[in-house]
Nucleic acid binder design. Structure first.
Lengths: 278, 278
DNA sequence: CCGCAGTGATACCCGGTCGGTATCGGTCCG
DNA sequence: CGGACCGATACCGACCGGGTATCACTGCGG
C-alpha cells in the first residue's frame, strides 16, 4: 500500500463524502473514487458502503481508518526526524512542546537546569493547544513534551513522572464559594451562573466555544463568565480578579515528561535525566 | 514520502550496495539510484555517502533507516489487519504467537480456559522462532503473543505479566556439575567442553550455527554438545538424557502476554483477562 | 408525475514518472 | 596499464495517476 492511497482513504473515511474529500485532497472526484476502488479490490475487502446519499464505513474500513492514521503518523515522523537530523545533526536541537500556560515554573526550571548541563543541545520551546502535543510527538515535529495525566493520552510514548499537584477551583474574586476552605466537584459544577469550563481541543457543542488554553480560561473566569478546575500550580497566573479553593474530590494531576518510544538521542536522554532530578 | 521510496531506501541502507539492493527489490540498479537521489533532494538531506567501493549511512540516513522500518511496519500492519477484519470480522479470529517450546503448559491452559469463555473467538496458535514474534505483532500478522522478559523487546506493546520462573541450567545427564544443588552462571559458562548456548534468532559468529528454538537446543544438550540456561518450566521437555540444576544468579524470566497498543478488539480483551486470571 | 439537484461511477485523454537498456566515469587491483 | 567493479547518466517506452465530460441512480419539490 502506498501512503497516497492511505491519505485518500483517510480523507474519504473522515468526510464520508467523495466530493468533499476530493476537494480537501486537492484532486478531482473521479480519480479519488477510482483509487478507493483499487484499494478495496487489492485488499479484497469492501471498506465503504455507498448508499445513495450516505457513505458509511464497514468494519474493515473502521479498522483501516485507525491503522492508516497511525501509519501516516509514522511516515510523517520518519520524514520530519530525518530532515531535522540532517539540518541540526542528531543532537542539534530539541523541540520541547507543552500546553500554553501549563507547568510554567517547572518548565522554566527544567530549561534552565538543562542549559547548565554539560553537552546540552539548544532547546526550542513550542507552546500549543491542548491535545496537539501528543500528535506533534508522534509525527516527529517535537522531540519531547510535558503532558498531564490523567488528561493526555500517553499510549505509545515513553514517560517519566515529574510532579503531582492537587487541583483547585478557580472562581471570580468575591464569588460566594470563594471563601470556602474546600469544595467538591459537584459544588463547583452546581453553580448555575458560572459554567464549569475545561481547556479542550475539540470544539464544544452548539454555541459553546471551546477554550483552547489556560490563559484564555483564566480571562473568562476573571470576567465572571466561567469557573475552572485546574492544578494548583496555576496560582502563578492568578490575579486579584481570581480566587482559588482546593477541590477535595478532583483527581490529582501528574505532570510527566514524554518522548517517542524509539528515540535514542543522547541530548534527549540528558534532558529527561535532568528533569527527573529536579 | 511514499512507501515505495521507504522500501527502496531500507533496502539500500541494509545492503549498503545499490546493485544488491536493486536485485533484492526486483528492479534494475539505475531506477533505484534515481529514486534515492530524488528522496535525498526532496528531504534536502544527504542520506548516503558514496565513497568508491563503500556506501555508508550519514547520521540522517541512520535516523531514516530506523524510522522507515517502523513506518513500513505500521503500513504493513494496516494492510494485514484490514484484510483480517474483512475476512473474519473484527473479532473473527485471534492469532496468538509464541516461541516454539516456550511456556507450553501455560499456553495450553490459556487456550483451554479461553475456549471455555462466553464469546471467545477461534484462536490460531502460531509457533515461531525467537525474535520473530514481536515483528509479527508489530506488522499485524498476529494479534497477541506470549513473550519472555527480559529477553524480548516489548517497546510499543501493551503487556500484562502472567508468571515468573527461575532459570535452571540444563546439562547432559551424568555431567559432573549435574549433581550440584545449585550453580552460578559463571560456573555454567566455565565448562570448556560444553559451550553455553542460548536460542537466538540472529546468526552466530563464524562457524557458530544459531540455535533457533528450545527443542533444537535440548537435543544438542542431550547429545552432550552444549549446555543451556532456561526457565525451569522446560522440565516438561526434559528426558533421561538431561539434568537440570538451578542457577542462583540468572535473572528470573517473566512470561507476559503482549498485544499492539491500539488494539480494541473485545475478543482480545477477553483473552487477556482470561490469561491474567489463570 | 416530472424534472432537477446531488452524488458516485464510468469513459476517455493526456502527461508525468517509473522502470528498462546502454553507456559513462571514476577507482582499485592485479 | 587494463580490466573489473560500481554508481551515475542518458534515453526511451509503457503504465498509471489525474483531469474533463458524462452517465446512472435516487430522492425531493413543484
Amino acid at each position: 500500500m502506498e501512503t497516497r492511497e492511505l491519505r485518500y482513504f483517510v480523507a474519504v473515511a473522515e468526510e464520508l463524502h467523495f466530493g468533499r474529500a476530493a476537494t480537501r485532497l486537492g484532486i478531482a472526484q473521479p480519480p479519488l473514487s477510482r483509487a478507493i476502488q483499487q484499494l478495496e479490490r487489492r485488499l479484497g475487502v469492501p471498506l465503504l458502503v455507498r448508499a445513495h446519499r450516505a457513505v458509511t464505513l464497514t468494519e474493515a474500513g473502521a479498522v483501516l481508518l485507525r491503522e492508516a492514521r497511525a501509519a501516516l503518523d509514522a511516515v510523517d515522523a520518519a520524514e520530519q526526524r530525518t530532515r531535522r537530523a540532517g539540518r541540526d545533526g542528531v543532537d542539534g536541537r530539541l523541540v520541547l512542546v507543552t500546553k500554553t500556560g501549563a507547568s510554567s515554573e517547572l518548565l522554566a526550571k527544567l530549561v534552565d537546569a538543562y542549559a547548565a548541563e554539560e553537552g546540552a543541545a539548544p532547546v526550542e520551546v513550542v507552546l500549543c493547544q491542548a491535545g496537539e502535543q501528543e500528535r506533534m510527538l508522534r509525527d516527529g515535529r517535537a522531540d519531547v513534551a510535558l503532558l498531564h495525566l490523567p488528561f493526555d493520552d500517553v499510549e505509545g510514548l515513553e514517560v517519566e513522572p515529574l510532579e503531582t499537584h492537587r487541583q483547585v477551583a478557580v472562581l471570580p474574586a468575591g464569588h460566594p464559594l470563594s471563601t470556602r476552605e474546600s469544595l467538591t466537584l459537584a459544588e463547583v459544577r452546581g453553580v448555575a451562573d458560572l459554567p464549569l469550563r475545561f481547556p479542550t481541543y475539540d470544539g464544544g457543542e452548539a454555541g459553546e466555544h471551546a477554550v483552547r488554553d489556560v490563559t484564555q480560561l483564566l480571562q473568562l473566569v476573571g470576567l465572571g463568565r466561567a469557573s475552572a478546575v485546574l492544578p494548583e500550580s496555576v496560582d502563578a497566573f492568578l490575579s486579584d480578579a481570581h480566587a482559588a479553593v482546593p477541590v477535595s474530590d478532583a483527581p490529582e494531576v501528574t505532570t510527566v515528561i514524554a518522548w517517542p518510544e524509539l528515540a535514542t538521542s543522547p541530548a534527549l536522554a540528558l534532558l529527561v535525566r535532568t528533569a527527573t532530578r529536579l
